[in-house]
């Protein structure tokens, strides 16, 4: 059992949305698609398997070679390409003795297993899922709550994204992290026509993120971009900041960066918003998530 002083740490391996964006103008915040790892003592989970999971896999494979096989838990918010495309490049999947457990929503028209093995079909990839050396187990969430070691996880479906997605609340050691990517909260908080349903969705989101020590959240668009991309399933930055602050979020990592946005764009946004929200009551630390950063709560 881990003690109360054990740190809960979060590492960003991929922060970009939609498609990976290599190049000089994206080097700072990163071009890999979503992957975040959370560690608490000996327990760890991986959120999403975008292209960022490749580098995490290299680190884990080296650790496995030194310390022996382990169990890797991957929780998928949904199965759009940018959240699963790194999976075939996850090195622990090729190590015999590794247990690889992949969790995802049961609310799909096709079974999760067939979606994931589909992207490793011989027409798309040379190695098929059944050929992986690791013991792969694919599980659909059966309940809203699950526990992995001392990490407690709560799930909630997000319908404001094409095909849906899941947000996760992760608690350990008295700290709370919320991972809520791929959701268009504008449709709940600023709908063209408010209804009981939009109010319910807004309240549900606010309650889920309330008092989070760290919220990792979809903030793909600027306000002007959002006006042109309503219904695309992503959130605008000003609204996200307003909603997060009202819910007393302590740190906000803006996530799922638009492929068209450069490092300079994020630097400017961070400069614009970090000081404002850092000096409000209660203060909220705002930053744009970037690859290669580990923070501790």
């Amino acid at each position: 059992m881990s003690s109360q002083t054990t740190p809960l740490s979060v590492t960003f391996w991929g922060t970009r949305g939609s498609i990976s964006t290599p190049g000089g103008s994206t080097e700072k915040y990163g071009g890999n698609t979503p992957c975040v790892s959370v560690r608490y003592g000996e327990d760890s989970i991986i959120l999403d398997a975008g292209t960022g999971i490749r580098v995490l896999g290299i680190r884990l494979a080296s650790q496995i070679r030194e310390e022996g096989a382990s169990t890797q838990h991957i929780l998928l918010s949904h199965t759009h390409w940018d959240h699963i495309q790194g999976l075939p490049f996850f090195q622990p999947a090729y190590i015999k003795g590794t247990d690889l457990v992949i969790y995802g929503s049961a609310q799909k028209e096709r079974f999760l297993e067939s979606i994931l093995s589909g992207q490793m079909d011989v027409n798309y990839f040379p190695v098929q899922m059944k050929e992986l050396a690791a013991n792969v187990s694919i599980r659909e969430f059966e309940d809203r709550f699950m526990t992995i070691g001392d990490i407690h996880i709560e799930m909630q479906e997000q319908i404001l994204h094409p095909g849906g997605s899941i947000r996760f609340k992760i608690t350990a050691g008295g700290h709370k992290i919320v991972y809520a990517t791929d959701v268009e909260i504008n449709a709940a908080f600023e709908p063209d026509e408010p209804t009981r349903e939009t109010r319910r969705l807004a309240d549900e989101y606010s309650a889920f993120i309330q008092d989070a020590d760290l919220l990792i959240a979809d903030g793909q668009y600027t306000e002007s971009e959002y006006a042109l991309k309503k219904g695309w399933g992503h959130t605008s930055v000003p609204l996200l900041l307003k909603v997060a602050h009202a819910a007393h979020v302590r740190q906000l990592a803006v996530f799922h960066h638009d492929p068209e946005h450069s490092d300079a764009h994020f630097d400017a946004l961070e400069q614009q918003y970090a000081a404002t929200y850092g000096s409000t009551l209660p203060p909220m630390r705002v930053f744009w998530a970037r690859e290669g950063v580990t923070i501790e709560l």
């Binding site: 700072k28 930053f287 950063v293 580990t294 501790e296």
Partner: peptide
């Protein structure tokens, strides 16, 4: 802290 964010580890950029 790197650019105002308390970090445990951070890959540095220019």
């Amino acid at each position: 802290y790197v650019n105002g964010v308390r970090i445990t580890r951070c890959v540095l950029q220019n």
